[in-house]
Every structure is written in structure tokens, then in C-alpha cells.
Amino acid sequence: MATMNFSIPDDIRDAFNREFSGQNKSAVIARLMQQAIAEADQQRRRQAAFEQLTAARAERPALTEAAARASREFGRP
């Protein structure tokens, strides 16, 4: 198991100690770090999906304005 040292503002440290008094603070920090890692991974996957979808947009055929209007008006009384 590794040890890490962080500098944080005193008010955050005090609020953390009040909120998690009586709990294993190392376990709480480890859980928060795991959540942060998962969120960063999810953000990377979302960005990759966005880039893939937007890259494919250039390859899709564009609909002309006339064709779009015809589609909207098709079947209308």
C-alpha cells in the first residue's frame, strides 16, 4: 500500500474531518479517488464517441433543402 501527501486548504480539511469523523479516512479518500478515475474514464469515452460520430457526419450524404422540404410536405393534405 502506498502513501500520498496532498496540500489542501484548512477549511476543506476541517469540513472533511467533521463529515467523516469516526470513519476510516484513508478508505474514504481511496473511494473518492476511484470515483474520480471512473468519471475521467467515462469523460474520455464520451469524448471519443463524440469525435467518432462527428467524424462520420462528413461522410454522410447531405440532404438538399428541396429534398428536406419535399420530405416535410409529403403526405400532408
Rank of each mutant, 00 (worst) to 15 (best):
M1C: 04
A2W: 07
T3L: 03
T3E: 04
M4K: 13
N5Q: 10
N5D: 02
N5C: 01
F6P: 01
F6W: 11
S7V: 13
I8T: 04
I8R: 00
D11C: 01
I12H: 04
I12P: 00
I12F: 14
R13G: 09
R13F: 12
A15E: 13
F16W: 11
F16Q: 09
N17T: 05
N17K: 08
N17C: 07
N17Q: 12
E19S: 11
E19V: 09
E19R: 15
F20Q: 09
F20G: 06
S21K: 11
S21F: 02
G22H: 06
Q23W: 00
S26W: 00
S26V: 01
A27T: 03
A27N: 05
V28S: 01
I29E: 01
I29H: 02
I29V: 14
R31T: 13
L32K: 12
L32G: 12
M33F: 08
M33V: 08
Q34C: 03
Q34L: 10
Q34E: 15
Q35K: 08
Q35L: 15
A40G: 05
A40V: 11
D41G: 01
D41K: 09
D41N: 08
D41P: 01
D41C: 03
R44F: 00
R45G: 00
R45L: 06
R46I: 08
Q47D: 15
Q47T: 13
A48H: 05
A48I: 07
F50H: 14
F50Y: 15
E51L: 13
L53N: 06
L53W: 03
L53Y: 02
T54A: 02
T54F: 05
A55M: 13
A55E: 15
A56E: 15
A56S: 14
R57G: 00
R57K: 10
R57Q: 05
A58S: 13
A58Q: 10
A58F: 07
A58T: 04
E59Q: 13
E59F: 07
R60G: 02
R60M: 11
R60V: 03
R60N: 05
P61W: 02
P61V: 12
A62I: 05
A62T: 10
A62H: 11
A62M: 08
A62C: 03
L63F: 03
L63K: 08
T64D: 06
T64S: 14
T64W: 03
T64M: 02
E65W: 04
A66S: 11
A66G: 11
A66F: 01
A66Q: 11
A67C: 04
A67F: 05
A67S: 14
A67M: 12
R69G: 02
R72S: 01
E73S: 10
E73T: 06
E73I: 04
F74Y: 12
F74T: 07
R76Y: 00
P77I: 04
P77N: 07
